[in-house]
Amino acid sequence: MSKGVLIVTGGSRGIGRATVLLAAARGYDVVFSYVSDEAAARSLVAAVEAAGGKAVAVKSDIGSEADTLALFAEADRHGTLVGLVNNAGVVDLPARMDEISVERLERMLRINVIGSIVAAREALKRMSTRHGGKGGAIVNLSSAAATLGSPGQYVHYAAAKGAIDVFTLGLGREVAAEGVRVNAIRPGLIDTDIHASGGIPDRVAQLRESIPMKREGTAEECANAILWLISDESSYTTASVVTVSGGR
Rank of each mutant, 00 (worst) to 15 (best):
V166E: 11
N183A: 06
T147Q: 10
Y154Q: 08
G162D: 03
A144G: 15
M108L: 11
A184S: 13
E178G: 06
M127E: 03
A137V: 06
I185M: 00
I114G: 05
R186N: 07
P212K: 03
I138D: 01
R173D: 13
V182Q: 05
Q153W: 07
I138Q: 00
V180K: 02
S142G: 14
S150R: 09
E122F: 02
A176M: 13
S210Q: 14
S128Y: 07
E220C: 13
K161L: 02
A160W: 01
M108W: 05
A95C: 12
R121Y: 09
K161M: 04
G152I: 07
D98I: 04
E99N: 09
V175S: 07
P94N: 13
Q153V: 15
V166Y: 10
G188H: 03
I194H: 03
T168H: 03
R110F: 10
A144V: 09
R104Q: 13
L169G: 09
L189Y: 11
A137M: 08
V180S: 00
G172E: 01
G162M: 02
P212H: 07
E174S: 14
A184L: 00
V139W: 02
A205M: 09
I200V: 14
G188Y: 00
E220G: 09
F167G: 02
A137I: 07
G149K: 11
S142D: 03
T168G: 05
I211G: 04
A219S: 12
E220D: 09
G170W: 12
Q153S: 15
I200F: 08
G89C: 03
T168M: 01
Q153H: 15
I185N: 01
G179D: 12
S150Y: 07
P151F: 00
L141V: 11
I200C: 04
A184I: 04
S128W: 03
D98Q: 12
V91D: 12
A95T: 12
H195T: 15
G162Q: 01
V155Q: 14
I200R: 11
A177S: 14
G172D: 10
I114N: 09
L141Y: 09
P201R: 07
T168W: 00
K125N: 10
R110I: 04
A137K: 02
I190K: 07
L148V: 05
S143P: 05
G170T: 12
P94F: 06
I114T: 14
R173N: 15
H156T: 08
V175E: 01
S150T: 13
I190W: 06
G149P: 08
G179H: 06
P212Y: 08
G199W: 04
Q206H: 14
V175R: 05
L148H: 11
V113R: 04
G162P: 01
R121K: 13
V91E: 12
V180N: 03
E209R: 15
V166W: 02
I111T: 11
A205I: 04
L141S: 12
I211L: 05
M213L: 15
A146C: 07
A184V: 02
K214T: 09
I200M: 12
F167P: 10
L169S: 12
I190C: 09
L124F: 06
A196L: 08
G179N: 10
V155S: 14
A158V: 05
L207E: 15
A176V: 14
N112C: 10
I194L: 05
R104P: 08
L189Q: 06
M97V: 14
A146V: 08
A205Q: 15
D191Q: 13
E99T: 05
S101E: 14
G136M: 06
N183W: 08
R208I: 10
T147V: 14
